[in-house]
């Protein structure tokens, strides 16, 4: 690690002020991605603004036809939340399948989507559930938020405050874990709700999470595993590495989609 200033503001306003003032600040949430990056000396921020002390960012609230989750809410809390389990069990299950217990008790929703790791789980949920991402500056639709590998619509010193997940009628997430990292090698989130039908794929794409229109159309006509069983996403544009070829990932998208539809019922 290089040296940096450390701040732990109590309010969002203080956090914003600190961000505005610093040379090259970074927001610190659960630190599960940022701290390893710092330890490996791959980043050299002037200031770390730890948002863990801001009470207003740590909450889960069910209101009307949506669940609101504060950006600094830990994965474990989402996984265990009675509200999330009741209204959006697929989301609770997704959170329960992130990393390991230590990671789930530190990592946060806001940190996960701000980071937009192409193999992260939450981006698939946000995209498939038509989530609304509220920041200190605006509201961003999930469709507009994820811009590519480790890239989002967030501007410098824009803080995610909360994510609103409207209740789905049906939803399920199926994750094929990378054997080593246990991140998603391919994760498919399918949903049916007021937004229609969505199929979002994480892990596979070189540019991060994406939707599969062909599967969405097929499911709109016939909500059943068979409807997607013969739909293949093109291998071009998918990741290929030591853990699997692009063709393998393309194949897994179909398998996981099929299983997700079956699980969603």
């Amino acid at each position: 690690m290089y040296q940096f200033n450390y701040e732990r503001p109590k309010t969002l306003a203080d956090a914003e002020a600190l961000l505005a003032k610093a040379d090259d600040p970074k927001i610190l949430a659960g630190g599960q991605t940022l701290i390893p990056t710092l330890k490996q000396r791959l980043a050299m921020p002037s200031d770390l603004i730890d948002i863990g002390g801001i009470k207003d960012l740590d909450f889960i609230r069910a209101e009307g036809d949506a669940v609101m989750i504060g950006a600094a809410t830990r994965h474990a809390k989402v996984a265990q939340s009675a509200d999330v389990k009741k209204h959006n069990p697929a989301l609770a299950a997704l959170a329960a399948g992130i990393g390991d217990p230590a990671v789930r008790h530190m990592g946060t929703l806001g940190g996960s989507i701000a980071n937009n790791d192409p193999a992260a789980d939450y981006p698939a949920a946000c995209l498939a559930l038509d989530a609304k991402i509220h920041t200190t500056k605006r509201l961003i639709e999930a469709d507009e938020f994820f811009k590519g590998m480790f890239e989002t619509a967030l501007q410098d010193s824009e803080i995610i405050k909360e994510v609103t997940f409207p209740h789905p009628e049906k939803a399920a997430y199926m994750k094929f874990r990378n054997p080593a990292s246990r991140y998603a090698m391919v994760g498919v989130f399918v949903s049916k709700g007021p937004w229609g039908i969505r199929v979002a794929v994480t892990g596979a794409g070189q540019n991060g999470v994406f939707r599969v229109a062909e599967m969405e159309e097929a499911l709109a006509k016939n909500w059943s595993p068979d409807a997607v069983a013969n739909i293949k996403v093109p291998a071009r544009g998918l990741n290929a590495d030591l853990h699997g070829t692009a063709e393998y990932r393309a194949h897994l998208v179909t398998v996981m989609a099929k299983r997700a539809v079956a699980a969603a019922g």
């Binding site: 054997p179 080593a180 990292s181 991140y183 030591l242 853990h243």
Partner: peptide
């Protein structure tokens, strides 16, 4: 089933230099 120490065949960089890629 899981473990494999892999070097890039050209550069000789260790591809499996952490648990993200080396599967214990």
């Amino acid at each position: 089933l899981l473990e494999h120490g892999v070097y890039d065949p050209t550069s000789g960089q260790l591809v499996t230099g952490s648990y993200m890629d080396y599967c214990m």
